[in-house]
Design a protein around this nucleic acid. Structure first.
Lengths: 130, 130
DNA sequence: CTGCATCCTCCTCGATACTG
DNA sequence: CAGTATCGAGGAGGATGCAG
């Protein structure tokens, strides 16, 4: 696009608010967990329900619908009794999974540090050294 | 922990819910925008307020506090009149910025595709081919 | 098994007004 | 300039019951 960034000073500031868009897609409570659980191949509704601890049926349905709508995953219905529905990442979904990997890795590395920082912060009196 | 994952099949599934932790830290509406705006160096409160379109004073304050608590950025007060406060990413904050880069890049590449996928999805009759 | 509809609760966030 | 306090609306998300 036109964001090629010919200037050096704004190389990391392509445009003002793509960040918002990304969060609208996967910034909710469950989407990334679903994507993560599908990264190893197709899964059925109940499998996901069990794998993602704490998610309600409602939220799983809502989240899957949203991701399907965005083209992140596909929903395949086998018209049998009992119903059999499986979900699978699209190619784009897989690239998303890969794009989130660095962030996950970052968390793995730094979470302990963050925990420590919080403890330090909470222990501060700060408000009035005068 | 015991989740060391010596098996190959779960190489990308180190543990069940780091994802949740990350979202707790930067999954809110403004954190990533603040981090992004600090990636080019220290900024003052009002500068951030202007740079991040739509953020309220309250949310900027709350977001900055949270990020400071997590050790993502530092808050430096110059005790003068009028007050002068500047915020700057810590080394850890800078690594976070880098970890989010792939996700931003992903969005730049795929947002149009997602838009198209949504349009297609919304145009579907699907509900009753029977 | 998979999914929808409803109700209800809590938390996030915005608007406003006030302080040092 | 920087920040706090309070209020209120809105949406996310949990619980439950029903249906194909």
């Amino acid at each position: 696009m036109t964001t090629a960034g010919s200037e050096s000073r704004s190389a990391q500031q392509e445009d003002p608010c793509r960040t918002r868009e990304v969060l609208d897609i996967v910034g909710d409570k469950w989407s990334l967990l679903v994507v993560r659980n599908l990264s190893q191949g197709p899964r059925r509704f109940t499998e996901l329900k069990r794998a993602i601890d704490g998610i309600s049926q409602r939220m799983l349905t809502v989240t899957l619908r949203s991701l399907e709508r965005d083209g992140i995953l596909t929903r395949t219905v086998r018209n049998v009794m009992p119903p059999h529905v499986s979900y699978e990442l699209t190619p784009m979904g897989k690239t998303l999974r890969q794009a989130t990997a660095p962030l996950l890795e970052w968390s793995t590395i730094h979470l302990a540090h963050i925990d420590a920082a919080r403890a330090t912060y909470d222990a501060r009196p700060d408000t009035s050294p005068a």
